[in-house]
Amino acid sequence: MRRAALILLVLLVVALAVLAQVMDVPDGAALRSWVDGAGWAAPFVFTGVCALGTAVFFPKPVLATAAGLLFGIGWGSALAVAGFTAGAMIAFAVARGLGRDTVKGWLGERLRVIETVFARRGVEATLVIRLLPVVPFTLANYGAGVTAVKARDFALGTALGLVPSTVLAAVLGDALSDLGSPRSLVALAIWGVLAVAGVWWGRNLITAAARAA
């Protein structure tokens, strides 16, 4: 039964990833139309779209950039972070329920080190994966669900880790008409610095865990 649940989880993730690739992604005009049509409920609608979109592999940068376009940098970033965190927890809960018990019995020595990092320093480990642009956001959410990270640590690490990238995407969205502007160039440079910091931080966490093992 546990193996069947894990297979179901893998099939679900693959199906959602494929669906995200073949579906039509709405552009900024379509998203603005949806939000305008929602009236006073627009913030709640957008947050819900972010949550559901995150859980089903909808491109997060599209939503984060749209947040800046539709609501401005401050308000848009707050709504996007709330929605992304909620969506991350949906994916986390699904993976935790379907795959955790099976995966923990298959861990090799190398993976046990990573498991130790997530178990003991869950907030930091989650922050690291949020700073790495090469790690797909939604895939990381499902992957974290089968690790030993505590749900509250994952939620906190996700919320904190989302702030820099979401604000930067909102800045780019707010200045979408002028991507060559100094503000946009600075935002992209900061994004690169954060990625390098994430790699360095992650290596330190794994090295420390390996030495302690």
Rank of each mutant, 00 (worst) to 15 (best):
A42K: 08
L179I: 12
V186I: 14
A155M: 14
V45H: 06
A29I: 09
V196G: 06
P136T: 05
D27T: 04
F84C: 12
I90Q: 12
M1D: 09
L16G: 07
T65M: 15
N141R: 03
W191E: 01
V56Y: 04
T47E: 00
A51E: 13
W34S: 12
L172M: 14
W201V: 00
L194S: 00
R100K: 15
R211G: 15
L9Q: 06
R121Y: 08
P133K: 02
F118Y: 15
L107T: 12
R120P: 03
L70N: 11
P164D: 02
F58A: 11
V49P: 04
I90K: 08
K150P: 08
A195N: 07
L11M: 12
A209Y: 13
D101N: 13
W201D: 00
L185D: 02
D178M: 01
L107R: 14
V56A: 11
W40L: 12
L69H: 01
L79Y: 13
V163H: 01
L188H: 04
G143E: 02
S33I: 00
V134L: 14
T85D: 03
F84Q: 09
A55H: 09
L194T: 00
G68F: 12
V149A: 14
V135Q: 01
G157M: 10
G53N: 11
V13C: 01
E109D: 15
R96V: 02
A51W: 13
K150W: 07
A189N: 05
W34T: 07
V186R: 12
V13E: 07
E109T: 12
A159E: 03
L188A: 14
V35T: 15
A148C: 07
G76L: 13
L132T: 03
V81K: 05
G48F: 10
E115M: 03
E115R: 06
V14D: 00
I7G: 05
A64Q: 11
F118L: 14
G143I: 04
G122S: 03
V14A: 15
A17S: 14
A159I: 06
L188D: 01
V128N: 02
P26C: 10
L79E: 07
P136F: 04
A38M: 06
L107Y: 11
L9I: 00
L168C: 05
D27G: 15
V13S: 06
L79C: 11
A82G: 08
P61S: 07
S177K: 04
A170L: 10
A119F: 03
V14Q: 01
T166N: 06
G202W: 05
P133H: 01
L8M: 10
L139H: 10
A64S: 15
E124P: 02
F84I: 06
D178P: 10
I190N: 04
G39C: 08
P59L: 09
P26S: 09
V149W: 11
R152D: 02
G28I: 09
R110C: 04
T166W: 09
G173V: 12
I90C: 11
A15R: 08
D36V: 10
F71E: 00
A55F: 08
L6M: 14
A80C: 15
E124N: 04
A210K: 14
R2Q: 13
T47R: 03
W106S: 09
T85N: 04
R121K: 12
S33T: 14
A38P: 11
A38R: 08
R121L: 00
G180H: 13
V14I: 14
R112A: 13
L185G: 05
E124C: 04
W40Q: 10
I90F: 13
V193H: 06
